[in-house]
Nucleic acid binder design. Structure first.
Lengths: 231, 231
DNA sequence: CGCTAATTGCGATCACCGTTCGCAATTAAG
DNA sequence: CTTAATTGCGAACGGTGATCGCAATTAGCG
């Protein structure tokens, strides 16, 4: 019956008024989880693993976090704190573009982030501060509130999707290498059958022209312009 | 050492040349898994659950599918078969828009799809046919192959992200209801603190103006126009 | 000060999960 | 008819998220 929501973490006080001093903190736990995710991927972030990495018992983590999803929520909000929100630009479009570039950098630093952002909303204080900053950049724009919200959401989605493409086609390291080559091999086989002629033609074109950053800037800027954000 | 790739399903023959007749088929398994996912969500699609639903032992499923990921791959390709690829439009932009609308409909029929499409590539025959059709719509467009590919990928990502927004803000049914109201409640609390003024203002604007379909069409059309797809 | 009530850490345990193994039964090919 | 490959599957392994109950700790109150 109690289908807990991950965002409930933010409604609970971090520290109780009575009882023994907690030996750990949300921040410490989030940082530990973050390091594991950066090093070994999100799937390595299990309750037991994180608990062990800070020298705690598995069940103890549940004093700080009510579910695994809440742990992830903590992680997401922690990295959302990496934004430099005061950074700005000449006009609304430039300001948003600035945020988008920062988002791309953050997702490159934390490869597990992009899928999460595409999959679930994050509502921690840092995430809300980011949203607030993005909307603040649109303060002078004459658009209904929900439209502004949607524009920002769409920009974030585009950013995440783009980064995920980048990461997927990046040089696979170690164990993931065989997986990637296996996929490429299968694709090569399939394309040689003669079905999918347009696909075959498209993939044999010259590799991406220009740098990835510029492509990204172009796509986002173009989207914002079309959405009515002045620049 | 053997880090299996989900796309390996498509390299194995469905049926062996010798041995007893299989009692099931990839299609039957995919259909059963699909029904479960539609009814109870993707998390209900476990090997044991699917096996039981077709009257098979858990270990038997591994004769058809080498991993849970391959099962998901089967599901994704099955729903990719719901596209009507011969449907068209007057110009490239209209043709792609047509595909985007179909994609949106499919994701509405199968709420578990959008997150998957945003998260992993699908390379089954039906998925490739879809890609081929989309690229075929761009045959007359003067753009390098990789750019066409990226445009299609971006359009799909935008579609998935948009649908996920739609589904998230849709009337939550049953058990998910409490989760949604809990989130709204937390948001209301937080906005009343006075921080996040722009956020508060944006959320109190009139609800989405116009129908969702039209917003979707506008966003996609605008993106395609900016990407240089003639219409 | 001492008592009470709340809170912490956590070992043990539960219900699942994906996956592997070994074996009996079935079948096409030589 | 024999042989070799393939199927179905019960049993088991290691791992997961989550819960429970208990001993230890602590703030606030009388």
């Amino acid at each position: 019956m109690t289908a807990h929501n991950p965002t409930d973490v933010w409604r609970r006080p971090e520290r109780a008024t009575v009882g023994p001093k907690p030996e750990h903190s949300r921040n410490g736990i989030a940082t530990a989880a973050l390091r594991i995710a950066d090093d070994e991927g999100l799937s390595a972030v299990s309750i037991r693993r994180v608990a062990a990495s800070i020298g705690a018992g598995a069940a103890s983590l549940y004093r700080y976090v009510k579910s695994h999803d809440e742990l992830v929520e903590l992680m997401m909000d922690t990295v959302a704190g990496e934004y430099q929100l005061e950074a700005a630009g000449e006009n609304p479009r430039e300001k948003l573009l600035n945020l988008a570039h920062q988002g791309r950098d953050i997702m490159h630093r934390h490869p597990w982030l992009a899928p999460l952002l595409l999959t679930r909303p994050s509502m921690g204080p840092n995430s809300l501060r980011y949203l607030e900053a993005a909307l603040s950049a649109l303060a002078t724009v004459d658009l209904p509130g929900p439209a502004k919200l949607q524009t920002v959401a769409m920009m974030s989605a585009i950013t995440s999707a783009f980064v995920q493409n980048e990461l997927a086609s990046a040089p696979a390291s170690g164990a993931a290498e065989s997986a990637t080559t296996s996929r490429v091999l299968y694709l090569a086989e399939t394309l040689h059958t003669g079905n999918y002629p347009h696909l075959a033609a498209a993939m044999f074109g010259q590799a991406h022209s220009g740098h990835s950053v510029e492509q990204f800037a172009g796509i986002v800027a173009n989207y914002l312009a079309g959405a009515g954000i002045p620049g």
